[in-house]
Computed example of a mutant assay.
Amino acid sequence: MRLFDHLGVSVDDLPRSIAQFDPVMQALGCERQDADGSVSWSKGEDELILFPARVGESGPHRHGRVGWQHLAFPVSSRDEVDRLHAIAIDAGWTAVREPKLYPRFNDRYYASFVEDDNGIRFEFMHNPPREPAAAD
């Protein structure tokens, strides 16, 4: 059984958030589904849903406070991290951390962090497996 089925996120301005999320989610290979009062993107059985906040103008979320921290998307290459980062920036996300290596995690971990107008933070990351040691 999967660990997660879907992730729901509340946003202040649903149309503005759709404009920011849609290019990124499409670039990740997700399919969009519009519904009354929400929109979702899915890839296989995984789904991300945006809902309008029940209390208007209650955002943005502040990173580091109780609640949402970030959502990391594993991708196939450093070039893909760079590409997704650029797509997010073009869609109005703010760069929190430009694409770079994160040796504090390991010497292969390459990632970028972006944040939307609601304070929702995404990480695009490439962390290839360690090369197996050569047999003697």
Rank of each mutant, 00 (worst) to 15 (best):
R2L: 10
R2H: 07
G8D: 08
S10G: 02
S10E: 05
R16H: 04
A19L: 07
F21N: 03
F21A: 07
P23Y: 04
V24L: 14
M25F: 12
Q26N: 10
G29Y: 08
C30H: 06
S38A: 15
S38F: 14
S38M: 15
K43L: 11
G44E: 11
D46C: 07
D46P: 00
E47P: 06
E47F: 05
F51A: 04
V55M: 13
H61S: 11
R62P: 02
V66A: 15
V66H: 14
L71V: 15
F73P: 06
F73T: 05
V75S: 08
D79F: 07
D79T: 13
E80R: 14
V81R: 02
D82F: 12
D82G: 12
R83H: 14
H85Q: 07
A86R: 15
A88G: 09
I89T: 14
D90R: 13
D90E: 15
A91P: 06
A91K: 05
G92W: 05
G92V: 03
K100I: 05
L101K: 02
L101A: 07
P103I: 05
V114K: 01
E115V: 14
D117R: 03
D117W: 00
N118E: 09
F122H: 02
F122M: 04
F124V: 07
M125G: 05
N127L: 01
N127P: 04
N127V: 01
R130V: 13
E131L: 13
E131T: 06
E131C: 02
E131G: 03
A133P: 03
A133C: 08
A134M: 11
D136Y: 04
D136Q: 10
